[in-house]
Amino acid sequence: MTLIGIIFYGFLAIVAIVSAVAMLLNRSAIYSALFLVLNFATIAVLYLALGAPFIAFTQVTVYAGAIMILFLFVIALLGAEKLSGHEPIKGQRTMAIVLGLIFVVELVLFLIFRNQGIQPMLALTQDFASPQKIGIAMFTQYLLPFEVVAFILLSATIGAIVLTRVEKPARLGAARGKK
């Protein structure tokens, strides 16, 4: 790994962390969403570096594309409400930060003390995890989970429609009239 590589990856990592922190701190939901898109894009680049081009493109299209667009739609629909910085739960903020710090320290300790078997990144062959290979694996070995996920998406779609549907007063009246 060259120095340029280290600088490149380090830069990407810093961008990812900064965008995540920015998403976290920004009072406006719109900006938060945009920072998250940036974060997702950065991660997608890292996926490429990890030899996962298919996942990287899916990340960009599905996550940064579809899902975040959906977020923006909803934010636009509900109005970009700005909530006050007041914290109604006593001790929540302190405890959250303390626990977060402990958490991250623990994970770091894991990386230091429990890293048996972790080697430097391997040089990857060109066709490892090519879309073709993933497609073959997905439609042979993982066919059943794939179908299950399809059903989950279908039911989620129906669920979203049902949840957001507005009861029409006229139909309610008709139902009452029948009784």
């Binding site: 739960i89 626990l99 977060g100 623990e106 994970l107 300790l109 429990r114």
Partner: peptide, 19 residues
Amino acid sequence: RSYVLSIVAGIVIILIYLL
């Protein structure tokens, strides 16, 4: 959020144990 805090506290404790 308070409930989530409890969950996180639980995870932290479990991680301490694992460490």
